[in-house]
Design a protein around this nucleic acid. Sequence first.
DNA 1: CGGCCGTTGTTGAACCTTCAACCAGGATGC
DNA 2: GCATCCTGGTTGAAGGTTCAACAACGGCCG
Lengths: 164, 164
Amino acid sequence: MSDVRWLSAEEQQVWRAFMTAVTKFTEHLDRQLQRDSGMPMAYYEILVALSEAPERALRMSELASVCHSSRSRLSHAVARLEKEGWVVRQACPSDRRGSIAVLTETGFRVLEQAAAGHVTAVREHLFDVLTPDQLRSLAEISRAVDAGLTVQCAKVRREEFADL
Amino acid sequence: MSDVRWLSAEEQQVWRAFMTAVTKFTEHLDRQLQRDSGMPMAYYEILVALSEAPERALRMSELASVCHSSRSRLSHAVARLEKEGWVVRQACPSDRRGSIAVLTETGFRVLEQAAAGHVTAVREHLFDVLTPDQLRSLAEISRAVDAGLTVQCAKVRREEFADL
DNA sequence: CGGCCGTTGTTGAACCTTCAACCAGGATGC
DNA sequence: GCATCCTGGTTGAAGGTTCAACAACGGCCG
């Protein structure tokens, strides 16, 4: 257990700088959306996903995977979005278990409004403060981290299988 | 209002890759800590901050600023940590409004345990998947984003003053 | 001193997320 | 057909965060 590879002083610096930036950044975006459009970022992303889908509709499970959200979370979220009148749920014709979330016209207009402020904030605090080189790096880094997590999760799933 | 500088296709790709990576990464860390040590990452960071402070003690307001946390959040969090016996609150001798959070011996040991798994996860999914060059980039990028947010917040505060 | 304002910290309500439990419907094997 | 298992989706409770309101204290200036 004591064979932990602790972080060096420089590594700690990088790590903390990273976490600070990410925390402040996402907090800023979240607050902006909440203040200007009355929804947290997770809900905004649900609306975006729906708006880009054919017919502006997606099955709950697909929507969950597109949004990197758990089924449960999505269920609660869509319930709220439905109460606002931004989304409606329809029965799925091909699978009677299924539920299809559809973006309403009202929801689409709300999304358009929200997008303006959100994109502006993203540009202002991410794209405007980075050089083109840094942006390319960020893309690479993001893909590497994502890939690392995906591999790891596959490995964990294999181990779970091994347990049974 | 329509003078929004929307994102180009490439910019959108970078933006989504970034958000996906960050979301998955923080979610992974949070889940790891919750599972193995029974605390969310925000609470872990409170314990870390206390452990590094002289006497392992900090005033609530300082603790809040070190952890980038609101007073309210910290108050709730410390209440929970106190219930676990990991932290105790003492009156501040120099300022009778003040409250001082102190890490207990139990809390310190819990933190040591938690740190092993946490640092391992961070190394595995961040440091191990990035090249030294990418790490240097990431540090720069983080600092740039952080700086951009800090400037912006200062500007907002000035505008609030202007309103009055 | 006494009034006023800013700071410190807590509280409760509302909201969001997580987790475990659950129901209903498909899919598979006998 | 039916027993079994897996999948899709919802629900309620527990825990975390946010926001607004508040109480208590310090600091400042008349």
